[in-house]
Design a protein around this nucleic acid. Structure first.
Lengths: 152, 152
DNA sequence: CTAGAATGGTACTAACTAGAACTATTGTCA
DNA sequence: TGACAATAGTTCTAGTTAGTACCATTCTAG
């Protein structure tokens, strides 16, 4: 029986890394996301709060580089955080194009409450899966792969 | 000078895996996404087409399990694919709750054109970063971590 | 010192996201 | 067989996504 040729690259080495990478990230998110939401923040909002914590504030540019939120998206995220009085936008003196974003006292309090709680929640999931040596091996291999994706 | 205690768990072993995991995934997406879009599909649409390729079709339920698209989101994705005549919804005979989703001939042609092209585009990024042994080590560690996130 | 390039932030679009609520259908077990 | 739970798919909401276009401001090179 002649069979139409199929498209099945599942034997490819790299497909065997691609799926686990994506699936591990998703498994992480499905664990991480609901916990963050239960703390009253969305993941992007948490990312911003965590990045601003323990700093004197930074511009949108810096913030979008340090977080994984692009600057177009950041506007909306900051709008919602501002509405909740967790951050404030202060026009910069030196460069009038810039806005300094920083935590309000309320935002700082929220940071101190939510950030350690979330770390403690996630930590056991890493610790029970990997030894210290395995974790640093994983870290190294991931960073090599990341670097390869970023190279032109 | 007394300094307010800061919240800095960057020394935690697991934080050293968390960031690379997320950043590698993002680096992957930033490479993967524009190429898929240049082929005329969104990533979710591609995921669906790739999953339906070389099958006789499947229900929304199955599709949402095999892809990384949840069933609520799937409805909209399928609507758009149906509008492009790449998939069709066939009501199931046996179970009238179910709908069979399958590629149209046009969808099948698109699959055969787009899927191998995308694989070839992404492959070198993996190959230049990792040896075969490293890739399987990475795969193993990722799967262990994934399993840990999924465990209760 | 001024024209043109670069930069910072916002506005907009189409699509996607999880999650919850809803309808219709099917399975179960008492 | 009849109530009740489970399942399939859709709808809805609030928020996020990348990307592009846009405006104001600032830098730079002639």
């Amino acid at each position: 029986m002649a069979r139409r040729p199929t498209v099945d690259p599942s034997k490819d080495l790299f497909m065997q890394v691609l799926r686990p990478l994506v699936e591990t990230y998703f498994a992480f998110i499905r664990r991480d996301d609901p916990h963050i939401r239960s703390l009253g923040l969305t993941p992007s909002q948490f990312d911003v709060i965590a990045t601003l914590g323990d700093t004197e504030g930074m511009t949108c540019k810096e913030l979008s580089e340090k977080t994984l939120v692009t600057k177009g998206t950041l506007t909306g995220v900051l709008d919602r955080l501002e509405r909740k009085s967790l951050i404030e936008r202060v026009p910069s003196r030196e460069d009038r194009r810039c806005t300094l974003i920083r935590l309000t006292p309320k935002g700082d309090a929220r940071f101190r409450e939510v950030f350690p709680a979330h770390i403690e929640y996630m930590k056991p999931h890493f610790q029970r899966a990997l030894t210290t040596a395995e974790a640093s091996k994983l870290r190294e291999l991931l960073l090599r792969l990341k670097e390869s994706f970023e190279r032109t």
